[in-house]
Structures are given as structure tokens and as C-alpha cells.
Nucleic acid binder design. Structure first.
Lengths: 227, 227
DNA sequence: CCATAAGCGGAGCCCACGCTCCGATTCTAC
DNA sequence: GTAGAATCGGAGCGTGGGCTCCGCTTATGG
């Protein structure tokens, strides 16, 4: 059971800035791997087998593991790349003239992000896992930034004061992780709009682009899909 | 790839009403299995290994498979038992004097149900899977019943008319499946309250038992947990 | 009490997946 | 062009989990 520890410290792989000299083909392969992993994890989340990533990258599994010591490491590398811009987006939004609108905009954007890259949602939902230091730091920054954004939006009087950052996190996680069959893009937009409505003070359906359409003529049985 | 089909039709197991004569110990074992599976699937969802269920039931794996030809079959048997009362609850609620309140009450109850029996939420989220005829029928009935309940609640003027049954399904699925670390019982209650708020016409925080508490003194960083 | 068939149980098959190992290959410096 | 290091690739190991098989046990009807 203690083998897990030894394994991770075999080599630090993933040359970030040091690269004392990476062979040209190695660089190419690494990029291919990242590309393939991005594509596959966007659709299937973290459940993609490494073999599939390797195959798509036209590379052996060994090559994948030479670049990323662990499947999780690869996963986290991709996450980091996705989360970083979100942090600055949140900070920008917090500094906006109308923090209320900015908050709602950010939330919508966040959900789109989740939908575009399922692995992100996976990471959010599986909050129990122990993440690497880097990931923990960046996600802490995200939380912090969103919390500030939320606070300003509340001070501005646009967002209910009784809503907490935990509420927002939980709802985002929930909305982003549902099966695509039950939650296609337009359905997700509707749900996000509903949730936003519940966060706003007073007004309803304030999201112009995203306003809920009138329900269909026959409101009973909107679709025969399963529970 | 085609072996999956042959396997399922090996024997129809699970004697429902016919039982031309079941040995006493067999009956006892079957009950034990159902009990163990219920307990374990409530906590761990569908991911419990069959071996664990067998162990808890103090029974061999073989015995489990003699009663339920497939892990999924066992899973669905439990689901059926859980969904059936929900259907009648929805019908009762639809006939209530105040369909609006009844609808909200039903939704809250539904979420509690999910929390008490994680496998139910798993089933809802994994809507893509092809379910057995029985399961499809009962979940169809659930949808139908909830749709009627929703319609009456809308007619009564308590629930927004632009909300559809799909919206409700999707939100329930989302809220019910989030990681318990991110969504503990009290957090879930808050979120359900928020969602209900967004479904109501006009009024906010109408749920007395479930009203949102004031946010904590320091709204920034409600917790150092991950993204 | 016995014959017999219903039922039991768990060793073990098979497959999927994360990950390792090492001989073969390819790039690069000279 | 060539030596030699860097890199590759994929066979294969270990684990875990669904499911089967079949010799053994036990309930049951006479």
C-alpha cells in the first residue's frame, strides 16, 4: 500500500522551464499528448483510458508516462491551464462597474467552461481527492476571487446577501456534472438562468440572452426521456 | 462485444410472483442480499462491488447472481422499490389543495430521497444507459406524475409558467449528484431552497423550514476546500 | 431417515486499466 | 557518418471487479 508514494517520486518529469535541451521529437510528442488529452478529457472527463490518449496522440503509453508520471498529473496539468484564466476573469469581473451583472456573467461563463471541458466539472465534483499543491493553490485562488466577486455583487445590491460562496460552488458543481443526455447545452442554459434568478435580489429572468422561453403548448410530458 | 446479450438471457431469475416453491433458506438469502445491497448502495451508489454486497449478506457471490442475473438487475430492483412510492407521492401532491406548496414539498422530498439513497441519484444522472422495460415504465410514470403536479402548480399561480418538467428533472439530477464533500445535507437543503425560490412566482425564500441563513461574518473564503 | 434436487459458495476466468520495463529506434553533437 | 545518449513503444505485470462453474451442502417430501 505504500508503493503509491515511491512511485510518484521516481522523476519529476514534465520539464516546465528548465529544459536543458529537449529533443525535437520529444517536444512534438509532448504537445501531441496534451492535445489529445485535452480533446478526449473535454468529452469524456477523467475517465478516458491512458491508452486511448496515447493512441490518439500516435504515441506509446510509455511516452505519455515519461511526460506525466501519473494519469492524475496529466489531468491536473490540463486543469491548471483551464483554471488560471478563470481566476483572472473573476478578478476582472470583481472590478467591473456593475458587479451584479458581472457576477451573473461570470457564473454563466463558468458553466459554459464546464460544459466545454467535462474534466473540469469532474474535478469540481470530486472534491474529496487530494490534489497536488499547485492545483490546490490555483483552485484556492479561484475560490477567493469568486468570493470577492460575490461580495461586491452583494454590496452592490444586485445579489441576495444571504447567498454564500459555498452555495455558488455547490450549485455550479451540480449543474455542470449532469449527464449530457439529461442536460444538453440549451437545457443547461435554462438551468443556469433559473439559478441566477434565484441569486438575484427581486427581479426575475434578468438575463436577456438567456431568458426562459415560454413552455411548449402541452406542458405535460415535455419528452419521453427516462427519469 | 456481443457476449453481453447472451449473458442476460441465461435465466430470468428473480422469481416475482410465480415461485412454484422456493426453499426457505433461499428466501432468507434473497432478503439478506436485498438488505445488504440497499444499505451499501445507499451510501456508495452503484459503484459497490458485488463481492462486498455478498460479504455483507453473508452469502457467496454465486448466490447473488442466482437471484439477480446481473449487477444492473439488482440495482434496478432496488431502484424500482424506491421509485414506486415516489410516483404515488407525486400523484397525491398533484391532488392537494395547494398544488404550489405541494410541488415545492415534493421537490424537497425528492432531494432528500436522493441523498438517502445515492444509487437513485446515480441512476438519474446516468440517464444514457438503457434500462429494463420495468424501470423505463416506472420512471416514465414518475415523469408523467411530476409533470401533472407541475402543471397544476403552475395553474394555481404559485409556480412560474415558463418552467418545464425538463428543467425540474435536470436541476434535481444536478443537485442530487454532487460530491458529499461539496454538498453536505445542510448545504443541499440550502441549494434546494434556492432552486425552489427560482421556481416560484414572485415571492422569495418562501420555505420556512428551509430558509437561507444569513451568510457568515466573513463572506470571503467560506472554507479552504478545493475548487 | 434417505434420496434427491435445490441451492450454496468461492476459486477462478476474463477483461479493463494504470503503470513499468527494456530492447529498438532516432536524434544530435562531433 | 557515427557514437552514444535520449527517446520511443508496446508487451506485459498487478489489481480490481463482473461473472461463471461445479463440487459440496442442505432442505424437503415421502
Amino acid at each position: 500500500m505504500s508503493t503509491g508514494t515511491t512511485r510518484r517520486e521516481r522523476r519529476d518529469a514534465a520539464p516546465v522551464g528548465c529544459e536543458r535541451h529537449m529533443r525535437a521529437d520529444a517536444v512534438r510528442n509532448r504537445e501531441r499528448i496534451l492535445e489529445a488529452a485535452t480533446t478526449l478529457m473535454a468529452v469524456h472527463g477523467i475517465d478516458v483510458p491512458i491508452d486511448e490518449i496515447a493512441e490518439r496522440a500516435q504515441v506509446g503509453v510509455g511516452t505519455v508516462y515519461r511526460n506525466f508520471p501519473t494519469k492524475r498529473a496529466l489531468f491536473e496539468a490540463l486543469l491548471l491551464a483551464r483554471i488560471t484564466p478563470l481566476v483572472s476573469a473573476a478578478r476582472t469581473a470583481a472590478a467591473a462597474d456593475e458587479p451584479g451583472e458581472a457576477f451573473v456573467g461570470f457564473v454563466r461563463n463558468l458553466c459554459d467552461e464546464f460544459a466545454d471541458f467535462k474534466a473540469l466539472a469532474d474535478a469540481m465534483v470530486a472534491s474529496g481527492v487530494d490534489l497536488s499543491a499547485a492545483k490546490n493553490q490555483i483552485s484556492g485562488e479561484l475560490i477567493e476571487a469568486v468570493a470577492q466577486l460575490l461580495e461586491r455583487a452583494q454590496v452592490s445590491g444586485r445579489i441576495r446577501p444571504d447567498v454564500t460562496i459555498s452555495d455558488v460552488s455547490a450549485m455550479m458543481a451540480g449543474l455542470s456534472h449532469t449527464d449530457p443526455m439529461l442536460m444538453d447545452p440549451s437545457q443547461r442554459k435554462r438551468c443556469v438562468a433559473l439559478v441566477c434568478d434565484s441569486l438575484l435580489v427581486g427581479a426575475r429572468s434578468v438575463l436577456p440572452q438567456c431568458a426562459l422561453k415560454q413552455s411548449p403548448p402541452d406542458p405535460v410530458r415535455t419528452g419521453p426521456r427516462s427519469c
